[in-house]
Structure formats: C-alpha cells, structure tokens
Simulated assay, not measured.
Amino acid sequence: MGAGASSAKRPPPEPTPAEIAALEQPFGREGGEMCFYCLPHDDEMKKRSPLVVMEVGPQGLRLMRPASDDCLYAYPWGQIHSWASADNRFSFRYFDDSKKAVVQSSLFLRDLEPLLTQIQTVIESILTDRKKLAIPAEKFAEVLQELQVAVSSGGSTPLDALQRHLTSEYYFWSAQGRQVLAAIPSAFDKIEVAVLLHGRLIDQNRFSHILETLESQADRDNVWHRITQLKKLSSKMAPSARH
C-alpha cells in the first residue's frame, strides 16, 4: 500500500441535486400508507435496487422495488432506534440481526418534508390508539409493588409478575418501562422483561430509551436479537393459523 493510503472504506458517492429533483411524486395507498421514491446511499442496498420506494405506514417502513410489491427490506417501528434528516437526506438507525448491532441506513429523496409529516401522522395515530389502554397510575403503582415483592421473596420471577398486566390488559409508557427495569436487579431478568415490554409500549418508537437502563451493549443487542427472532417465529406461524 502506497504512502498516505488508507485502509478505511470510503463512503459511497451521494446523488446529484439533478438526480434527486428527477424523482417521481409520492403516492398513497388504500390503507393510508404513503410511498416515496428514494435513492439509496448504501452500496449493499444499491446492488439490490438503485431506486427504491419507501412505504410509510402503521407497521413501519418498507423499502420496495418500484412498480412492484417486491419488499426488499422491512423495518417495524419498534425495531427503528431513531431517525434524522438534513437537506434531502433521511437516515434511520435500526437493529440489524445479521450483524447483531444497531446500524444506520440513509436514503435521498426529493420530498423530505412530506415524508416527515407522514411519519409524524402515523406515530400520532399509533399513540392515540394505545393511549386508550394506558395503565392507570394507581394500577402501575401496584405493578411496581408486585415486582418488588417478586424480587425480594423469590417466589416468582419479575416476568411472571408483569405478564398478568402486560399481555392482555394495559400498555405502558417508555418512562414507566424504565422504572420497571430499574426495579429489577438481575441482568437476565431485565432482558426478559425488556423483550416483553417491547410489544406493550404506547410510545414504542422510544423503546431505545428503555434499553439505556441495561448494563451493556451486549445486553441491548441480545434484546433486539430476541425480539427479531420472535417476530420471525410469529410470521412463520401466521399462515398456518389461518387454515
């Protein structure tokens, strides 16, 4: 390797303003989803399709081939860690199960403001539906007390104590989820409970806020991995359940 050469991988080139301006108009679907034409920034995604349609709906983000129903990538809201935007660039962080880590993906699009508006609309709709099943403050105090008894007595696990309230009755706020994990001393039990909480959060897009209470990045990655595996198992079981 010559003098001054670097082994660091160079970032892929960004599209030109003319290429971004030439993208087609967004369009809507019957289910309320909005679709936006995007130019991928990641080389791996470009290899699969140099142009993608990003569908934004209640289930999350889906990246599809144009003029087809061929879904290249799917990102449920609960799997998305965070997102940011600047100029015509939209970036989001998510847990990549194949890499066992939170990674970032970026796309360029012409209609950035309508995209952000659609995301906000979808998130607010999800919050509205789940707020109706928010756990009352007095009930949440009882849950915390049950947790403390379970931890101190050893008669049942924190997971057992929570399942009675989480699996069918109530949704929790992420701030309450943090309180729940803070009341559990065992790292193993924290992971078990975090996986359970994921599907029962009102503000599921703030799940990463809960994961901050875990002791290590390895524990956080373990939670994401288990959630991903549960989703895969559910998707495999769903077709047989219809027969």
Score class of each variant (00 low, 15 high):
86 A>P: 03
85 S>P: 01
55 E>N: 05
55 E>D: 05
185 P>C: 09
47 K>I: 04
174 S>P: 03
80 I>F: 00
115 L>D: 02
42 D>H: 09
144 L>Q: 04
221 D>C: 15
171 Y>S: 04
191 I>P: 00
57 G>M: 05
58 P>E: 01
58 P>D: 03
183 A>C: 10
149 V>M: 10
230 L>W: 07
47 K>A: 11
199 G>P: 04
226 R>V: 14
92 F>K: 03
43 D>N: 08
56 V>C: 14
33 E>N: 14
86 A>W: 09
161 A>D: 02
26 P>N: 10
95 F>V: 10
81 H>K: 11
148 Q>S: 09
243 H>D: 12
169 E>M: 13
163 Q>I: 06
44 E>Q: 12
79 Q>H: 09
238 A>H: 13
95 F>Q: 02
142 E>H: 11
97 D>T: 13
189 D>E: 15
137 A>E: 15
173 W>G: 06
93 R>Q: 12
101 A>H: 13
95 F>D: 00
62 R>S: 06
41 H>G: 04
71 C>I: 15
75 Y>R: 10
165 H>G: 01
117 T>H: 15
103 V>E: 07
220 R>H: 08
76 P>I: 02
145 Q>I: 02
132 K>N: 09
144 L>Y: 04
50 P>A: 03
125 S>P: 02
33 E>T: 10
230 L>F: 06
54 M>G: 02
106 S>R: 01
192 E>L: 15
12 P>Y: 08
100 K>E: 05
102 V>F: 05
136 P>W: 07
112 L>T: 00
113 E>Y: 13
111 D>C: 11
141 A>F: 07
42 D>Q: 09
118 Q>K: 12
115 L>T: 00
76 P>W: 01
8 A>L: 12
155 G>Y: 04
152 S>D: 14
40 P>S: 03
184 I>V: 09
109 L>C: 07
182 A>S: 15
186 S>E: 10
129 D>H: 11
26 P>I: 08
228 T>E: 10
55 E>M: 06
205 N>K: 08
94 Y>N: 01
222 N>Q: 11
166 L>T: 14
31 G>D: 14
101 A>C: 08
133 L>W: 12
136 P>G: 11
144 L>M: 05
47 K>E: 10
162 L>E: 00
68 S>P: 00
57 G>K: 04
81 H>Y: 15
128 T>W: 06
189 D>L: 12
83 W>M: 11
193 V>I: 07
